[in-house]
């Protein structure tokens, strides 16, 4: 039981990842596909933050605590921080492609987009 508690937060990340993938696989709408991809990406945040977490660790900001106090891992937070903003712009790019696909094909269903035209 204790073993499960120790890995449960990691399993949550895997579950979120699979939920996103399920969304992409069953998608009937391109906007839904893009949002599902965002869910997949979010699972990496859950995983990274869980790996860097330390029970009782302070936030890695030493503005008001003395250096030497044990903190959670700042590296995984730094990895995440840049990605949150970059993800937003990549989503914007994908949604722009969706807009263009709708203008060209007149449909938003991935199944109906199968026939590629020049």
């Amino acid at each position: 039981m204790n073993q499960i508690v120790h890995i449960f937060p990691y399993l949550v990340a895997g579950w979120v990842f699979l939920c996103g993938l399920y969304g992409i696989a069953t998608s009937r709408h391109l906007v839904h596909t893009v949002i599902s991809l965002a869910v997949v990406q979010t699972s990496t945040y859950v995983l990274l933050l869980n790996i860097g977490f330390r029970t009782g660790g302070a936030a890695p900001v030493f503005a008001d605590i003395s250096p030497g106090i044990t903190t959670v891992d700042p590296i995984v937070q730094a990895l995440m921080l840049t990605d949150v903003v970059v993800e937003a712009t990549v989503m914007a790019l994908l949604l722009a492609m969706v807009v263009k696909a709708y203008e060209k094909a007149g449909t938003l269903s991935p199944d109906d987009l199968r026939l590629m035209r020049g």
Binding site: V5, H6, I7, I51, F53, G57, D73, P74
Partner: peptide
């Protein structure tokens, strides 16, 4: 993986200190 809440990688601590 290390049990949740027991971070033990050295790099984060090196950076923080």
């Amino acid at each position: 993986l290390p049990p949740w809440g027991h971070y033990r990688g050295p790099y984060g601590d090196v950076m923080a200190t």
